[in-house]
Structure formats: structure tokens, C-alpha cells
Design a protein around this nucleic acid. Structure first.
Lengths: 336, 336
DNA sequence: TTTTAGCACTCGCTGGTTGCGATTGCTAAT
DNA sequence: ATTAGCAATCGCAACCAGCGAGTGCTAAAA
């Protein structure tokens, strides 16, 4: 357990380092009014904090920087999560007020807004197939061999996909398909659209393979593969001093260029409302030099997916978490 | 006009520099069997080529690199445009053979394939509203206040968008709308869906403002704003030696992060089948250190948009142009 | 007339040296 | 418990020298 002064020193060092990106010296902290001690005293505390693993040195005679344990302690115990100005509140409110036709647009708006306010790279992914129930399916004939399936989920999402056939389809057939699918699938989870259903329809219900198979295949594909990924402010990362290392810059590009990886990161563990992964805490090796902060967002009670920030370990955790909390709250209040 | 040997020297320097990214010395060219002269002779030719503006030096005693004029001459006069191996032909053919449900998927496949083969960052944009005729419009009621409009164009594209209303819409209304719009718009260009049409429908045909206005507004928005941009292999750029300069790397990220900019670049002038912009030839200031190669692609006779490569001026023009030519041809042969 | 050998000259790059400044750890005094 | 004082450490920028790659030019060879 850290005594009060050590907490103050650690907090000051994290905040100073987040601001300046330079190792923090004992003297630089003596100017702060909450730390009215000589540099020697601060030095002793810093030495203790280093021994306990909260701080690190870049070389023997350098100032200190927070270790991952230090950041973790800061995030868990020291940080303010209401670090948001009136202007920022106003800006966010205005953005989220916008009228949208598709509920997913709100994810995009929220992503952009977070990136604009925090100046970090922000990513988002739509909701997965899990937990979504089918409200209705509509089939619309677009041509003699082209059908559109439109799936509405109880979460308010609309997903459409085009199906092509090797033989002509009649309006009559579409009607039966429409009836059949809705009859069978309303209120069921999205994942039900799969091989067993295909077999059932073909074998039990005696539907034509040539009609049913492409439908099931394509809908399945649409549900599973087409999760939209949003990316905002990738270029902002390059203004950070840590990106002067080409190594780091390249790693970063590799991460955000790989959609699978981003999706994986956003989909992983959600113990809390807002989840903070610092450096090695990230499951992915590629992210060990970065910090990731994610939250699931809902509009009203409708699950809309996950939004996350990827930035340096030297991240303004306080600002990011404050902004995320506020946006999370605002979205929940909204109803569609 | 350059004599034969000068052409050979210029060509050799471009190709060597493309390969190695190092200034090319006179001695290094003497090994080539098409240049069986002493280094002194080559040196004289190089000095002439420099005076004529085709070559540059990085410093007094360095080897030569091509100037933009040099690259231009190489592209216009010297390059082979069939620089593609059997394996590559096979690879491309396999990729493009894939059965797709939506014609736009071919753009994505082509983009990915080009990036994989050339190892350059590849971008693409779907076709603009111009030149597309409306084949049919379908309206589907998804809820009491939610309508989907599906527009089929003669180019085989399907565009759908969701419209929300402030009041309930009946199936009956949708039917009239359906009839009306198709009657009025079939065979017309997409741009017809605009304010004059809105006014006509409301004033002359006495349709409800509350119904027509959102429809026109949203369709207009969907047509104009939602042009899909594809981006592949952004990370590959970072393996190039020119990206060791942080300046260059940052510029590059700024370019590809800005969708508007990418769209602008892909939409600009199309004098030829394949268009090459070298450095300062690019309209955009931001691209002055890069080269861009673009081509419009069609499937059969259907316009599918533009694909382009953004890479260093030291680009393998021969390979890129060869691959683009082949893909262009293959796509044209395909029919949907 | 064209080509080439030879050589002085230029310049970037690397490695070593030096001195400065920032910062620490420790000791002894307060 | 706190602080002043001081030696020690290390990064960093500046400077220098030597090496090597490459050129331009001149004069000789083909």
C-alpha cells in the first residue's frame, strides 16, 4: 500500500510524463504545490516507488517514467474520470444529437467524435451476430435470378444482402420463401441461419436445393463476415513523439491495417464498462507497446458494438475515460 | 531526341534505381551486357543525360538517380508493359474467376490482388453517380415509419438506403410511390433524383411533403456520399526505404487517411486507359513525393469505378502497368 | 572521332573523442 | 524526517579524421 505522498508523486509523474513525453526529474516536481518538498525528498520517494515497481529509468542518471504497473495503479486508484470540459460536453452533445437514418451511423459519429476530442486513433466494430434476434426477414426480387434478403433484428439493425441463382425464380416462389422463413425464424437468434436449417428446408420441406442453398449460404456470409469496421484519426498517432521511432510507427500501421486483428481486439473480454489494457496486458503481442481502451456502446438498450482507442502507453487515460463515460451515457439516453 | 545508347543508359538507371533505391554509379552499369562500355563512357553519357534533365545527383560525387523527367521518359518511351510472369497471370485469373453476388465485390478483389502482386498500396473507389442510368427502383416497407429504397442501375449496381419518416406510411402509399418513381425515373440518369423532382412531385402531383422530401433527400445522400473506398496494403509502404524518412511516412498516412483526398485523386483526369502521375505531375500538393497510377475498370461494359496505386516515385512502373493492363483486360472479358 | 585509362577531387559516412548538462544516489548536516 | 551538497553516471551534440565510392577531366589509345 502506498502512502499518501507516494501516491501524489506517482500521480504527478504519470501526468507530467503524459504531457511532456520526457522522463520526469525530481526537481521538476518540487514546483507543484501539492508536493512542497525538496528535490532530495522527492528523489527518495521516487527511489522507493522504483523499487516497488511503479517507476522505471531509461538510464542510470535519467528521470523516471511510469512502469506498466505504475500506469495500472494510476488508472485503478488515482485518475479522475470526470476530466471533461463544458465545451467538450457541448461538442459531444451536438454531434450525438444528429438525426440518423441507420442506427449504425451513430457508431460512426461516436467514433469520429472521440477521435476528434482525444486526438487518439479510434476504431469501432458493429455488433456481432451473437445476442441478436431476428425480427423479420424480407425477400425482394431484383431480377429473374437476383434476390435481396433484408433482415431486421430486434436490436434495430438492418442487414441486406444479394443472392444470385443459376435458374429463374418466380414471384410465387419468393412469396413462399418469405412466408416460410418468417414463420420459421421470427424471434430466433441470427445464428439459426445455418446448415441444419438448410437441410431441414430441403429434406423435410422439400424445397429446391438450387433455391435454398444459395440463400442460406449468402445470408450466413453476410451475417458473419460483413462486420463494419470504422477507423478514425490514424494520422493523429503520427504526431506523437513515440512515433519518431520507425519501429513503433510500423507496428502501429500493421495493427490498424489488419482488420481481423482490430476486430479481435475489440471483441475481447469485457469485465467492466470501460476496459483498459496497458502494454503487455493486451492479449495480442503486436500491441505490447500500446494501450487500448474499449467500451461496448448501446443506443437505448440496443447493442451497437464496441468502440476503442489505440494509443501509446503514455496515454491521457483520464481524458479518454472521461470522454468515453460521457459518450456512453449520452448514447444510452438516446432512443431510436 | 536521345540516341540509342542514352536510352539504354537511362533505362538501366531507372531499373537499377527501382531495384536498389541507391544512386546508380557508372561502374555498376558496365556489367550489363547491353552496355558493353567502360565506366568512363557511361559517365559521359550520364553527364549528358543530367544536363538534359533526365538524371539528378544527390551530391557532387554520388551516383545518379532519375529525375521526374527521366521517369516520365521511361514511362512514355522505354518501359515494357508485358512484364508479368505466368505465375502472376495464373494467380490473377484464379482470383478474378471467383463467383461474386455483388458486382462491387470484384473491385475489392481486384484491389487486393493488385496490392498482393505489386506490393504497393492500392486504393479503389466505386463508380460515381455520373453516367449511370436507373433501371428500376423498389421501395420496401420495413416498419411503419421505415422504408428501404433499392435502386438498380443499368450498370448492374444495386444501391439501397433506409428512409425514416415522422409519420406512419401505409402499404398503399408505398405502392403509389413505387409506381410513380418507376414511371418517372426508369432509364433516367441517377442525378435526376434531386430538388426539381421533389418540387414536381409535391407541387404538380400533390404528394405529401412529409413523404417525398425524406425520400429524395436520403436517396440523394446515398448516391452522392456513400461511395465506397477500398484500401489495401497500406502497411506495405512502410517496408520501402523511402519510408525511413518520418516526413515521408507521415505524409503518406495523411494522404490515405483522408478519404476525400483519395477519392479526388482517383476521380481526376483520364486521358488514357492507364494514367501515370509522377511526383509534381499530381494535382495534389500532398502527393508531390509520390507517384500515382490509376485506371478505370469495367466488368463487361459496366463501369465499376477507378483503381489506383500510390507509391514512391521510384516505383516499378513496368510491373504495375503490366499488372493493371492484364487485370483490366480480364475484367472486361468477364460478364455479369 | 570515339573510347578508355588514370588520377585528383568531392562528399557522405563511420568511429572515436571530448565536454556539457541533466539527473541521480548517497552522506552528512539540519 | 528532511534537506543541502557533491561525486558519479550517462546521453547527447560537436568536432575531427580517415575511408571509400563516385565523379569530372585530361591525355592517351583505338
Amino acid at each position: 500500500m502506498l502512502n499518501d505522498r507516494k501516491k501524489k508523486v506517482l500521480q504527478a509523474i504519470v501526468e507530467e510524463y503524459v504531457n511532456t513525453a520526457e522522463p520526469v526529474s525530481s526537481t521538476s516536481l518540487t514546483n507543484r504545490n501539492e508536493l512542497n518538498y525538496s528535490s532530495a525528498t522527492i528523489r527518495n520517494e521516487m527511489a522507493d516507488l522504483e523499487k516497488a515497481g511503479y517507476l522505471e529509468k531509461t538510464h542510470t542518471s535519467s528521470g523516471r517514467i511510469p512502469s506498466e504497473k505504475g500506469y495500472r495503479y494510476y488508472v485503478d486508484e488515482l485518475l479522475r474520470d470526470d476530466n471533461i470540459s463544458l465545451e467538450e460536453i457541448k461538442y459531444i452533445s451536438d454531434k450525438l444529437e444528429a438525426k440518423v437514418n441507420e442506427i449504425e451511423d451513430l457508431t460512426k459519429i461516436a467514433t469520429t467524435t472521440i477521435s476528434e476530442i482525444t486526438h487518439y486513433t479510434t476504431v469501432a466494430i458493429g455488433p456481432g451476430a451473437d445476442n441478436q434476434l431476428i425480427q423479420e426477414i424480407k425477400f425482394v426480387l431484383l431480377g429473374p435470378r437476383m434476390l435481396m434478403a433484408i433482415i431486421l433484428t430486434t436490436a434495430g439493425l438492418v442487414k441486406e444482402t444479394i443472392i444470385k441463382f443459376d435458374e429463374d425464380i418466380t414471384e410465387k416462389q419468393v412469396e413462399t420463401i418469405n412466408y416460410m422463413f418468417n414463420n420459421k425464424l421470427k424471434g430466433k437468434p441470427l445464428e439459426i441461419i445455418d446448415i441444419p436449417l438448410e437441410k431441414y428446408l430441403i429434406n423435410e420441406m422439400k424445397y429446391s436445393v438450387k433455391v435454398i442453398k444459395p440463400i442460406i449460404e449468402q445470408i450466413k456470409k453476410a451475417i458473419n463476415e460483413e462486420r463494419q469496421i470504422y477507423l478514425e484519426g490514424a494520422n493523429k498517432a503520427f504526431d506523437l513523439p513515440e512515433f519518431n521511432s520507425l519501429e513503433v510507427a510500423k507496428n502501429f500501421i500493421n495493427i490498424i491495417d489488419e482488420k481481423e486483428l482490430v476486430a479481435d481486439v475489440l471483441d475481447s473480454g469485457f469485465a467492466k464498462d470501460i476496459n483498459v489494457y496497458i502494454g503487455d496486458e493486451n492479449e495480442k503481442e503486436e500491441l505490447k507497446d500500446f494501450s487500448v481502451i474499449t467500451f461496448k456502446h448501446k443506443v437505448g438498450d440496443k447493442d451497437l458494438g464496441t468502440i476503442g482507442i489505440i494509443g501509446p502507453k503514455r496515454m491521457d487515460y483520464s481524458k479518454v475515460i472521461s470522454v468515453m463515460k460521457y459518450i456512453n451515457k449520452k448514447l444510452k439516453e438516446k432512443d431510436m
